[in-house]
Amino acid sequence: MEISVCDTANLKKPICKVRVEKEKAGRGHFDSGSRIAEAYARTPPPAEIFKRCSLRATFFIIFAPNKVPYMAWILRPVVLFVLIAGIAQQAQAQSDSTLPSRKEKIYNVNWKVELPVGVAALCISPFGFQALDRTSMFDKEDALALNPADINAFDRPGAFTDPAKFTISQHRSDLFLNISVLSPLVLALDKRVRKDWLDLISMYLVAHTFDNAVYFAAAFPIRRARPYIYNPEVPLDAKVGIAKSNSFFSGHVSFAATSTFFLAKVYTDYHGIKGWKRVGLFAAAAVPPSLVGVYRMRAGKHFRTDVLTGLLVGGASGILVPELHRNLRKHKQLSLSPYYSGEGSGVAVTIKL
């Protein structure tokens, strides 16, 4: 690890330099070794250091190929999680200081391309849903072969929901889905936001296009019977036909979450809302799709894991698409490069703070 604090304005040499030299690399461990500190006489006051200096840290994450394999599986995700969390925290701090002024656009959108692509993708999607329904067809033999005992304990209660509540639950889930999909319209009430209405419509369609793509990528290859197919109280005839084995994951919840999280993301970006208030708005955005999921489960359409996955995928779609369009100034704070040595390989991450 090398951490250098440099006076980028006036000094040609580092004010303070600490270097950790590699001695030994173990699988899943950071390099460790001796530290050599070099101090220079011309050291400005601490306030000036933080005012006029930059901080750079380089981390070498090394996974040797033949040492302590069981520890590697434990340490790899831990190390990567800590690293990613630190990078995300720093990126958030930098973004706070690089938000464009109110006269500038928050998002960089090429609506002449994204708008027609989004419209075309959503116009084609009904054909995808029809093909998915045909792919997930069940016959009597398929239905009779199912056993509720084969369902994992977390999802198993979904196979025994009351059939008498299926219809009303279906209507309520559709109601909250429609409310969720239309919820971004409230952005039109905000003068600061509606001036970019064409960009936002384009982004909204792209967010749903992305969400649909992820949904189809999972729903077509994964065959999972819907919960009511397992239910002994449901007649056999109702378990036969199309759209019986496309339980994973919940498209209704995913579509609803894409819409509400898109609303929360755009609103907080335009108004620069941070901290607990931002957390509260995103928590509120999770309520409508969660209600969709509750009633989809009561209707016997999805298991708990189907609903949770749909919420995560939809929320990610609604947040990531606007984030990728953020109109922030270019930065070079983060760089990645492969690392190779005789004892292992990994990735070198350099962060300029």
Rank of each mutant, 00 (worst) to 15 (best):
A348N: 08
P69E: 04
Y107R: 00
R326W: 09
Q333F: 15
F248N: 03
W197K: 11
L189W: 06
L185V: 03
D211A: 15
S32M: 08
P100I: 01
K165G: 08
K301P: 05
A164K: 10
Y228A: 02
P44F: 07
V347M: 11
L99D: 05
N152R: 04
R194Q: 13
V287W: 10
G275M: 01
N66L: 12
V181C: 07
K301L: 09
P148I: 02
I201D: 05
S341G: 08
F50V: 04
G293W: 03
G28L: 05
A207S: 14
F220L: 09
R42L: 14
Y228K: 00
P227E: 02
S136Q: 13
H271M: 01
D142F: 07
K17T: 07
S290T: 10
E23P: 06
M203T: 03
K12V: 06
L187G: 01
A149M: 11
S4E: 15
T8K: 12
R326I: 05
E233Y: 15
F216P: 01
P14V: 08
P322Y: 04
V79A: 10
G275K: 03
N212M: 09
G272N: 01
L99W: 06
S290M: 15
Y340Q: 11
F216E: 02
P116F: 06
V68T: 10
A285Q: 02
C53V: 04
K22A: 15
G346Q: 00
R226N: 04
L324D: 03
V313E: 06
S173R: 14
S101F: 13
K332A: 12
R304A: 14
P46Y: 14
L324K: 08
P65E: 02
R192A: 10
G26V: 13
T209L: 07
G28Q: 04
V117P: 01
K195A: 05
H325F: 14
V307S: 09
I61F: 11
Q90Y: 10
I242C: 13
V234D: 07
S337G: 05
F160L: 08
L312T: 03
K17V: 07
S136D: 10
P288V: 00
A9R: 14
L55I: 13
V287N: 07
P44N: 00
L122D: 02
R329H: 12
A213V: 04
K24G: 08
L177G: 02
V18H: 14
S254K: 00
L185Q: 02
P14C: 13
W276P: 07
D237P: 13
A41V: 05
D139N: 12
K51Y: 13
I61Y: 10
Y340W: 15
S169V: 03
G315Y: 15
Y230R: 00
R42E: 14
V68H: 11
P232K: 03
V240N: 07
A47R: 12
H252T: 02
F127Y: 12
L11T: 09
T350M: 11
F138S: 06
A88F: 11
D150P: 03
W197I: 05
P227F: 05
V82I: 14
S101K: 07
D199C: 05
L55H: 11
L175G: 12
D150I: 01
S247Y: 06
L311P: 05
K51V: 06
H29K: 09
R102C: 07
S180H: 09
I62D: 03
I242R: 11
V240M: 10
